[in-house]
Simulated scan of single mutants.
Amino acid sequence: MLRDGVRCAGAHIIVDVYGGERLDDLAHIEETLKECVEVAGATLLHVHLHHFDENGGVSGVAVLAESHISIHSWPEHRYAALDIFMCGETEPQACIEVLRKAFSPSHIAVSEFLRGRGL
């Protein structure tokens, strides 16, 4: 993958969602992950989500041919942590707007790391 003129294995985007809504809604989270996959131009292989009874949080992953998107949510704190890692001809940054629309956060923090720099 070539990203910003740098050859790398893939782009790894770390997303922190603050003040988010619907972070305990399993069906909504699954649809959001699927929409992220679609807008990024990735290939979905499988989605596995687990809903915790204690706090209503959700942990899970969308496994992609190009890697993965994972989520861990703490609805009682209106917070979610997501990892978006993709290689190939994908646009992982496109997922950010999908997450904004889906969870209506007060703030999103995004960090991007190029994995396997210089391959």
Rank of each mutant, 00 (worst) to 15 (best):
L2K: 14
D4C: 04
G5L: 04
G5V: 02
C8F: 13
C8Y: 13
C8P: 10
G10L: 02
H12R: 06
I13A: 10
I14Q: 09
G20D: 04
G20L: 05
E21S: 05
E21M: 08
L23H: 00
D24I: 09
D25S: 11
D25H: 14
D25R: 12
L26D: 01
E31S: 15
L33V: 02
K34P: 03
K34T: 07
E35C: 03
E35Y: 02
A40C: 12
A40E: 09
A40Y: 06
T43W: 00
L44P: 03
H46F: 07
H50T: 14
H50E: 14
H51F: 04
F52M: 10
D53Q: 15
D53C: 13
D53F: 14
E54M: 08
G56W: 01
G56Y: 01
G56D: 06
G57F: 02
V58F: 04
S59T: 11
G60F: 12
V61K: 09
V63G: 03
A65D: 04
E66D: 12
S67P: 01
S67Q: 10
S67L: 07
H68P: 03
I69Q: 08
I69R: 06
S70Q: 03
S73Q: 00
W74R: 09
P75H: 08
P75K: 07
P75F: 09
H77L: 15
A81V: 04
L82P: 07
M86R: 12
M86A: 05
E89D: 15
T90D: 12
T90P: 07
T90Q: 12
E91S: 14
A94P: 08
E97Q: 08
V98M: 06
L99M: 14
L99E: 07
K101C: 02
A102M: 02
F103A: 01
S104M: 10
P105F: 04
S106E: 04
H107M: 05
H107W: 08
I108P: 11
I108Y: 06
A109V: 12
A109D: 13
V110R: 04
S111L: 15
S111I: 06
E112F: 01
F113Q: 09
F113A: 09
G116W: 02
G118L: 15
G118I: 11
